[in-house]
């Protein structure tokens, strides 16, 4: 198939991509480390005698398994995806092989979209691995396996957010000439979004519910979106789905269209 020649070529390279397999191993190790840590927290909490202690308004110190699941999954996967996408997509700049794609007669739009597709495939690989191992990890941390109704919803809500995140990572990796800079910025973006969100929460959430504070202040960041969605009641499903799909879709199309536009004009070394 003529349209998919670049994807086929990139997938052929992907299966020979040693760093990706190393990162998958590290990712799995990290999930278990996090699960182990949470297991200790849960055990510690269960030994505390809460009777007679003053109530702390607005603070939920319960540890439901879906919360653990979300935290483990969220904490680990995006960084590993950021590194892998940056290494793989940025590699075309490092090896200058992006020239081969252009000189062979592939349009810049095709190169961009096929790189995005391969990045999404990388993201899916990590997502599935994270999903499976996070269920095991969360089950271990909570001291038993749970499959609450939240689980499916969390997974479904993660998918559009992942897609949007990967579109940003592809944008950065393809438009920066340096692979190292791509890795740095892609990782930084995950933290920068979190940091900005946390700073805003500090300013606006005083004396009110933290989740509401987040929603009021920065409703469009990924982290806030996740927190808001995991905290919203099932009766508010329409709003959750609207936020969970609509906002990532805006990110996805904005970065993809912008990326194609800029990549068409980009000078290649």
């Amino acid at each position: 198939m003529k349209a998919f020649n670049l994807i086929k070529s990139d997938l052929g390279r992907l299966v020979r991509n040693k760093p990706m397999f190393i990162l998958i191993g590290v990712n799995i190790g990290y999930i278990f480390l996090m699960a182990l840590l949470m297991r200790f927290v849960v055990m510690l909490y269960s030994n505390i005698d809460l009777e007679g202690m003053p109530e702390m308004p607005g603070m939920d110190i319960d540890f439901p398994p879906e919360m653990i699941f979300s935290m483990v999954l969220l904490a680990s996967s995006s960084i590993f995806i950021a590194i892998t996408v940056s290494i793989f997509i940025g590699g075309d700049h490092t090896f200058n092989t992006i020239r081969n794609k252009i000189i062979s007669g592939n349009s810049r739009e095709k190169i961009y979209l096929s790189s995005l597709t391969v990045s999404l495939i990388i993201g899916s690989i990590f997502f599935v691995i994270n999903f499976v191992f996070s269920i095991l990890g969360a089950g271990f941390a909570a001291g038993g396996f749970y499959f609450p109704e939240y689980l499916l919803r969390t997974i479904l809500l993660f998918i559009p957010i992942y897609i949007a995140m990967i579109s940003i990572m592809t944008f950065i990796s393809l438009l920066l000439k340096s692979r190292a800079a791509g890795i740095g910025i892609n990782i930084a973006i995950i933290f920068i979004i979190d940091m900005i969100a946390s700073m805003i929460i500090m300013f606006v959430s005083t004396g009110s519910n933290a989740i509401e504070g987040i929603m009021m202040s920065t409703p469009h960041t990924f982290r806030n979106l996740l927190v808001a969605m995991s905290g919203s009641p099932l009766s508010d499903a329409g709003r959750t789905i609207g936020l969970g799909i609509g906002i990532p879709l805006i990110y996805f199309f904005a970065f993809t269209i912008g990326g194609v536009f800029l990549f068409r004009r980009k000078a290649i070394k």
Binding site: G12, R16, K101
Partner: peptide, 11 residues
């Protein structure tokens, strides 16, 4: 592997 990748790229 390089030549094969280039064949795919160049279709």
């Amino acid at each position: 592997e390089n030549i094969r990748a280039q064949c795919k790229i160049a279709n």
